[in-house]
Amino acid sequence: MASDRRRLAVLGSPIAHSKSPALHRAAYDLLGLDWEYTAIELDGAGLRAFLDTRDASWRGLSLTMPLKQDVLPLLDEVDELATLTNAANTVLLADGVRRGFNTDVGGIVRALGEAGCDRIRHGVLVGGGATAASALAAMAELGAASVQVLLRRPGAGGSVAELGARLGLAVEVRPIADLATLEEADLVVSTLPGGADPGVEASAALRRATLFDVAYAPWPTRLVSQWLEAGGTVVHGLEMLLHQAVLQVRIFASGDPFQALPDEAAVLDVMRRSL
């Protein structure tokens, strides 16, 4: 692999708290790549000018919301998952071409698979936050036939239901209060922002499902506490961050999210320890 100095960054606002620099630097150090990865404060208004002024030393970008959506019209190519979810969290800059990818879906699938949840039939999605579309796509990839989406404002669930239809899922949008009465699920994914309290206790039956909470600060969230009190299985939100970052490193290193890194198990381990 090439050892020339390249530049990368995670963009967003606020961004100072981001764990991405630690994750990526650990990976590039192990891979022997003399690459610089920083965090840059940037909002949507400045995104076009930022992209237009990158020189050939720039290899790629990681994006937080709302830049994942703001960037789409500024890209030359967009992968299937980014098109489907209307969000690109990764931009590869190569040969004057801007290519957008969504590694959040793969990050969720890989995190759940590592926890032993690699096949589901029925899922529950709590919240319609920034990661909801990626979570729904991940459930479809895991084989779900149906997903119940629980929202504070069920009337705002049209876009989620539409995505579900495109994914071949039977999606039912219900009020978040129904968390207390649901009886069946293989997987519950919470995309509530910042670990917000859903305001209701999950039913005892539902807590037998695996819970994946994408929030990781503060931890544990209220939902996670409910699952732990019941002795349920919980997948930490940092696992998604970790696994989607591994896919980003693949993209930045080779241009291909499906091409494994040299000794990827060791790369994953050093990235996990950086957290």
Rank of each mutant, 00 (worst) to 15 (best):
D4C: 08
R6E: 14
R7W: 06
L8E: 07
G12E: 01
I15Y: 03
L23E: 00
A26Y: 03
G32K: 05
L33F: 11
L33G: 10
W35D: 05
E36G: 06
I40R: 02
E41A: 14
D43C: 05
A49E: 14
A49K: 02
F50D: 08
R54G: 09
D55H: 03
A56I: 08
R59P: 08
R59K: 06
G60W: 01
S62C: 12
L63G: 05
M65E: 12
D70Y: 12
L72A: 09
E77K: 07
V78N: 03
E80G: 10
E80F: 10
A88R: 07
N89Q: 03
V91Y: 09
V91Q: 03
A94M: 06
R98Y: 00
F101T: 04
N102Y: 00
V105C: 01
G107L: 03
I108Y: 04
R110C: 12
A111C: 11
G113Q: 08
E114Q: 13
A115E: 07
V124H: 06
T131N: 10
M139C: 06
L142D: 00
Q148W: 02
Q148E: 14
V149M: 00
R153T: 00
S159K: 02
A161H: 03
L167P: 10
G168K: 04
E172I: 12
V173S: 13
R174D: 14
P175Y: 08
E183T: 15
E184W: 15
V189I: 01
V189F: 09
L192W: 11
P193S: 02
E201V: 14
S203P: 14
R207C: 15
R207T: 13
L211R: 01
V214W: 03
Y216R: 06
A217S: 15
T221A: 05
L223G: 03
L228Y: 09
A230Q: 02
A230S: 10
V249M: 05
V249S: 00
R250L: 11
A253S: 15
P257M: 01
A260W: 13
V267C: 12
L268H: 11
M271V: 11
R272M: 15
S274V: 08
